[in-house]
Design a protein around this nucleic acid. Structure first.
Length: 438
RNA sequence: GUGGGCGUAGCUCAGGUGGUCAGAGCGCCAGGUUGUGGCCCUGGAGGUCGCGGGUUCGAAUCCCGUCGCUCACCCCA
């Protein structure tokens, strides 16, 4: 790069045609799944009042935000997540919306931090949320939608796994192990280190939080238990039994829906966001080489906290950055599709007016049509047709023009046949759609 | 914010210990082939070797700084 060149900002992407094609491939898969699950698409502003993010997420998040003062002196921020905007939008109409509400969005989100693998300063994220339902069926529904958003792109149970837990369950577990409610959040933070630091490391962190060694060891053993054994291991603890039972129901629903191979209980799963109140889940690649592809959970208190009605809600976010890496890894990126249908080849300049008329007529039928923008040799034109990925060439020359015909050459087989020019310029035959005209 | 690695053509990369080291492949443009593409052959365009400074007779090469990319940490979507 020369010094005079203006580069794109760190952590922001340019989407060249190939990359935009992949992005659109992902978005369209997400939209198909959203539609199948009966979700309506919405969107909100990319710039919001800073307070929308600080009020519930705390001041510490400000360091990670793209935030600044606008010309009117307002503290604003580029949205780092969609949930607050979603909550605000729901709040303004909550009374009039039929519950449960099912909405999804594909916002571009921003975060001011150093880029690294799978994390940039900007990304797109599928957000799907259900508002107004507490039944475990809704938890299973949102997890199913998350799985299908990935299945639609060709990923299967061999590629991805959904780790599911429930803050109510883990909270009850902490209570049972003598950890007071106000310590739950920091303890969640410590437990989150389990995979990175191992049990000894986490025991040390728990010790700093005032959890005794013995208790820490028992706790670490407990969260590794299968869900079915967890309640049994804590005998008469009703809170644990109830939470475990509820989560078991979610798993049962997911099993009934055919997703048993995708899901797994993970008592060590902790989501960073403070507002989760129940089910939490993350989707990871099976090889565990990438960071989480998707994360979400139940946030029953957030809507009320943001000034709206007291409505239960749950949802997830699925980013495009890690997902793109996974699709590339698994060779699930569709290769370049045909760019044009027809390439019109003019043998001499005399056919140019005819070519323009044919091009216009074919384009009116919805066909993708290309022709040289300056006179070139026939060989060059065919080469260009080949490069453009044309399905067929429409050859016009003096010999054909004289007889009112054109030669259609199938670019794959090389077969040629003559057709009357009227069949190209006239109205589409029958009721067939343009794309189907051959 | 901290630390490691890396910056040579549009892309992927060669260029022991400083002395035709400005290169290859792919891609692009053109010609071979003014009525037929893919393959092949030939030619061409394209780089202040990220930028700045220093050492030296001489720096893509060594030193310092800086910017950028990247990986990890922190944190988390």
């Amino acid at each position: 790069m020369s010094s005079g060149e203006i580069r794109g900002l760190t952590g922001f992407r340019d989407f060249f045609p190939e990359e935009l094609a992949l992005r659109r491939h992902i978005f369209s898969a997400w939209r198909r799944v959203g539609a199948r699950y009966g979700f309506m698409e919405y969107d909100g502003p990319p710039l919001e009042a800073l307070e929308l993010y600080t009020r519930k997420s705390g001041e510490e998040i400000v360091g990670q935000l793209y935030e600044f003062e606008d010309k009117g002196g307002r503290a604003v921020a580029l949205r780092p997540e969609m949930t607050p905007t979603f909550a605000r939008m729901i709040a303004t109409r909550a009374a009039g919306l039929a519950k449960p509400v099912r909405w999804f969005s594909i916002p571009q989100l921003f975060r001011y931090e150093r880029p690294q693998r799978g994390r940039l300063r900007e990304h797109f994220q599928l957000n799907m949320d259900i508002v107004g339902e507490t039944d475990p069926l809704s938890d299973a529904e949102i997890v199913s939608a998350g799985i299908d958003a990935l299945r639609e792109l060709g990923l299967g149970a061999a590629d991805i796994v959904v780790r599911i837990s429930d803050r109510r369950l883990i909270g009850a577990l902490l209570d049972a192990h003598g950890i007071s409610a106000e310590d739950h959040v920091p303890v969640f933070g410590a437990l989150d280190r389990l995979e990175k630091e191992g049990e000894d490391g986490v025991r040390g962190r728990l010790g700093e939080k005032g959890v005794e060694r013995e208790a820490a060891t028992r706790l670490l053993a407990a969260i590794r238990l299968p869900l079915e054994e967890l309640a049994a291991a804590h005998g008469g603890d009703e809170a644990i039994a109830e939470a475990a039972d509820r989560l078991s129901t979610v798993f049962a629903h997911l099993g009934a829906a055919g997703f048993a191979d995708f899901v797994r209980f993970d008592g060590g799963l902790v989501r960073g966001l403070a507002y989760y109140t129940g089910t939490v889940f993350e989707i990871w690649d099976r090889r565990d080489e990438l960071r989480a592809i998707c994360g979400g959970g139940r946030y029953d208190d957030l809507l009320k906290a943001l000034g709206g009605m007291d409505l239960p809600a749950l949802g997830f976010g699925m980013g495009d950055v890690v997902l793109t890496e996974l699709l590339r890894d698994r060779d699930l990126v569709p290769v370049g599709t045909r760019r044009v249908d027809d390439y019109i080849v003019c043998v001499s300049d005399a056919e140019r007016p005819l070519a323009l008329g044919i091009a216009r007529a074919l384009r009116d039928r919805g066909r993708r049509v290309l022709y040289d923008l300056r006179p070139r040799g026939v060989g060059r034109q065919f080469k260009a047709a080949h490069q453009a990925g044309a399905g067929r060439a429409v050859v016009l020359g003096p010999r054909e023009a004289e007889r009112g015909v054109a030669v259609l050459r199938d670019m794959a087989s090389g077969e040629e046949r003559e057709v009357a020019i009227e069949t190209l310029t006239g109205p589409p035959p029958g009721e067939a759609k343009g794309e189907e005209v051959r």
